[in-house]
Amino acid sequence: MWYDLLTSVFRGLVNTVLLLALAPLCEGIVRKLTARIQSRQGPPIRQAYYDILKLLGKEDIEVGESPVFQRLAAALGLASVLCIAWLIPMGVGIPFSGGDVILLVYLLALGAVVGVLAGIASGTTYSMLGVSREVMMLITLEPLLIIALLVAAVNGGSMRLEPVFSGVVFGDVTFSYAGLIMLLMVLAAFQAYVKRVPFDIAEAETEIMEGALMEYSGPKLALFKYAQMCRLVVYSGVFVALFVPWGNELMFPLGWLLFWLKVAVLVVLVTVLAASHARYRIDQAVRYFLVMVAVSFGALVLAALGY
């Protein structure tokens, strides 16, 4: 009993620390790779660490409607992402096995809600525009991931995370087409989950100047940026755990390395897609996601029928 608790705390801490340590590295890779695609030299890979440190060291300026909520939003943004690290296997098994799909969905949605909170708390015109876009994205995006998790839960017959994250999305005994459909759907929407071009609409620098984050600077911005970097890793983690979990049970360094390799592949994919696309308009994006949500519902029905 005590031993179990200790292992889960230990694993959770390892995941959190690794996430915090490696997320800026992933960001660095993204930037370097983008630069190479754009024929540029690009910043050094460790630049993202410097950026966080620099922002953390800056003066904390209080502007906007309600500074308390702004601070809360900044902290909550990073906290919610870090909590997810306790629920997904990052090469060393799931740290907190008590969680289930519903808890995971809550935490994932919280990350998006924090963006809305941040925008409302600063209360300027441009951040409100960002909020309205964020909400539209939230409403259409969240169902996709929920359905993907539900398909796995239906296939595996359990809402608990351990069975869900064991590749059961592609069927327990027989092959499930629903899982394959969901893989395609989540992959197609992946840029939006990690807020990259062409779906970084809620932040669109050239349109609404970072939207909800417009009024943030210094340490608060550092936390948002950090959360954003972690988001890329965490969503990749969820994707890997749900759709390509194989190899996790390998001996310690192998399984662990394999996990990070898969994440790195996703990061590269995200970068290439982001670098080769123009940003969509919010109505175009919403229409695109609505079609995908409809298809996903179909997949859920398929899964329930056992296909």
Binding site: T34, I37, Q38, S39, V197, D200, T206, H277, R279
Partner: peptide
């Protein structure tokens, strides 16, 4: 124009 549309790669390439 590409930069405004969020397509920075073409922006960089046309500058190159």
């Amino acid at each position: 124009a590409c930069h405004i549309a969020g397509f920075d790669t073409l922006f960089m390439q046309s500058f190159r």
